[in-house]
């Protein structure tokens, strides 16, 4: 395997980014070999992003991550990112930026996290998820634009049993996963056409309630609290319109969720942690073959929406 390190070198009054490339059998050996190429030792305690090529991720993450967990000097708050194509391009692209590669990528992921395009995973929580049988990993996926200049968020990479499935959810779908896994303080935005006029909303808070209805079906209830961000032309002087819009939104969002769940089931990727839930609610349903069960599961989604605020104009 091949590893590439981008780090900053302290100069008199500024820092400069240096990129080293090395090969080896394992991440540790790569690092050792890389160290031979520079005059100083590589200190991974300031690691801020770990970018893994998608071809490596297909046969399981665990073996690449061990070294990060074993050495107490490593930072476990770094992001794990899956990259399309060759990782080298991503690091090379960083040479032209003013920010360091690590800093850039971690900011890219963090801003995506706030908008719920990617769920929150650090190196540590990645490990915890890999070791949990009832849930699967979902990691940010980045791509480069045509000119090989700017990396951008390509969505999320779906995992099943610790291995990358090869399937990527585009950002507009990946935010649905963010919605389903809702954490506090995250804003999820949706835009639709309502009567041919743009309608944008932000989901402020989500209350979820899951229920096992039979041995083969599960029901996911979601209560959404929404703010209207944009609704042109048609103002809301008539309050009767609001239930109408709510209904429309409920229906649209349910559709979106169902689409995503179909993908998840196809890929046997239980990123929602349904397994962990079933394990508690109905232990007999959960066994070693959970992923097969999950693929066959009858998942019903029921979304209830409530518009709380409409902004400063009616």
């Amino acid at each position: 395997m091949k590893g590439i390190y981008a780090y900053s070198e302290a100069l008199q009054d500024s820092t400069e980014i240096t990129v080293i490339e090395a090969e080896g059998k394992s991440p540790r050996e790569v690092r050792l070999n890389a160290e031979m190429k520079v005059e100083q030792s590589i200190d991974l305690s300031m690691l801020s992003a770990f970018i893994l090529g998608e071809d490596l991720a297909t046969d399981g993450l665990e073996k690449y991550l061990d070294v990060f967990y074993r050495d107490p000097y490593n930072s476990l708050t770094a992001f794990v990112v899956i990259a399309k194509g060759s990782v080298k391009d991503y690091i090379d692209a960083s040479k032209s930026w003013s920010a360091e590669a690590g800093e850039y990528y971690s900011r890219l992921i963090r801003s995506a996290e706030i908008l719920s395009y990617v769920p929150e995973y650090t190196l540590q929580t990645t490990g915890a998820t890999l070791n949990s049988k009832g849930t699967d990993l979902v990691l940010p996926y980045i791509t480069l634009d045509e000119k090989q200049q700017r990396p951008q968020l390509g969505g999320v990479a779906l995992f099943s049993k610790g291995k990358y499935t090869g399937r990527v959810l585009k950002p507009d779908q990946s935010k649905v996963i963010g919605l389903l896994l809702q954490k506090k303080g995250r804003k999820i935005q949706f835009s639709f056409f309502y009567n041919n006029k743009p309608l944008s909303i932000t989901v402020m808070d989500v209350k979820k309630k899951w229920k096992v209805t039979s041995s083969n079906s599960i029901k996911l209830d979601y209560d959404l609290q929404m703010d209207i961000q944009e609704l042109s032309g048609d103002n809301l002087t008539d309050t009767k319109k609001i239930p109408e819009i709510e209904k429309f939104l409920e229906q649209k969002i349910t559709e979106e969720i169902e689409k995503v769940i179909t993908v998840l089931q196809e890929e046997k990727s239980d990123v929602l942690g349904v397994g962990n839930f079933v394990r508690v609610a109905k232990p007999e349903m959960f066994d070693e073959n959970w992923h097969e069960t999950f693929a066959e599961l009858d998942i019903a989604v029921n979304v209830k929406g409530k518009i709380l605020k409409v902004g400063i104009i009616k």
Binding site: P72, L76, G127, A128, S132, K133
Partner: peptide, 29 residues
């Protein structure tokens, strides 16, 4: 609450490990 069950096979000082994974603004480790 923090670790999944299988991780306890590898982690012998879990309390330290939790703190290891935390980062506050002024201190990383």
């Amino acid at each position: 609450l923090y670790f999944s069950l299988d991780e306890f096979r590898f982690i012998s000082e879990p309390l330290l490990y939790i703190l290891h994974t935390q980062e506050v603004t002024f201190i990383k480790r």
